[in-house]
């Protein structure tokens, strides 16, 4: 886990899409949101979960490892960057290798997009757009100490178990107090997600889950 990072608490998410809208305003990818907001139980409850790039630390950035064009840079501060525009060939390896389902691809532009922890802001000490606007603190940006000042005794975890493959990440998630912090979070690899194909609760908003922009395949 990075020193100053994003901590996600899906339990606080109310699915308002403020993070999606704010991300779209970011200067480095104007008009396109890099954050995913998924409704986990559409039609059944309001449960929703935001997903930013988790900035995988070990194994380091699978997206960068599978990239055939050396387009994804990992800076010494642990941030996994979006694709270098001069190198990305738009193959989509990163999109499908990412165990978290984060990168997006624009097939016409032959370019990958992904959350870069709002590097234009965080490299100057500002919080990312999503964390700045989240009204419930579901997306928090800061150190663990700062989080604990706001939420005394809170615990976080930053390892995931994908069917025995353990991935530790730079971004963390809140876990209930008392849960062993070194116990990995479930990646859900062995399970079948309940397909949530019913209409979006937010009316006709375009789903932020769309990873393929442009003509699919």
């Amino acid at each position: 886990m990075m020193g100053r990072t994003i901590v996600i608490d899906p339990g606080r998410c109310i699915g308002c899409q403020a993070c999606v809208s704010a991300c779209r305003e970011c200067d480095s990818h104007r008009g396109k949101s890099m954050i995913h907001l998924d409704y986990l139980d559409q039609g059944g409850s309001v449960a929703s979960s935001p997903t930013v790039c988790m900035h995988c630390e070990d194994p380091v950035a699978p997206c960068a490892q599978v990239c055939p064009a050396e387009a994804i840079l990992v800076t010494p501060d642990g941030v996994v960057h979006d694709a270098d525009k001069s190198r990305c060939i738009g193959c989509g390896n990163c999109v499908n290798a990412c165990p978290m389902g984060v990168p997006k691809i624009d097939l016409a532009a032959k370019l990958q997009f992904k959350c870069n922890l709002c590097y234009d802001r965080t490299s100057y000490g500002l919080a990312p757009m999503c964390a700045t606007v989240c009204p419930t603190g579901s997306i928090f940006y800061g150190t663990l100490e700062e989080l604990r000042t706001e939420r005394p005794g809170v615990e976080v975890a930053s390892t995931f178990d994908f069917d025995g493959s353990i991935i530790s990440t730079g971004v963390a998630m809140v876990v209930p107090r008392g849960r062993p912090v070194d116990e990995p979070l479930p990646g859900g690899a062995g399970e079948h997600a309940r397909v949530t194909g019913s209409p979006q609760p937010a009316g006709h908003l375009e789903p932020s889950a769309d990873n393929v922009l442009g003509d699919p395949l």
């Binding site: 998924d38 997903t51 194994p59 490892q65 493959s165 979070l185």
Partner: peptide
């Protein structure tokens, strides 16, 4: 080749990956 042994996940779409993880968190963590 890269010893990323979760390669089976490449046959699950990005959205389902996120839903699986979110639903697993919701059913077993919180």
């Amino acid at each position: 080749d890269l010893k990323l042994d979760f390669d089976g996940l490449a046959e699950v779409c990005p959205r389902c990956k996120r839903l699986r993880r979110g639903q697993a968190y919701r059913s077993t963590v919180k």
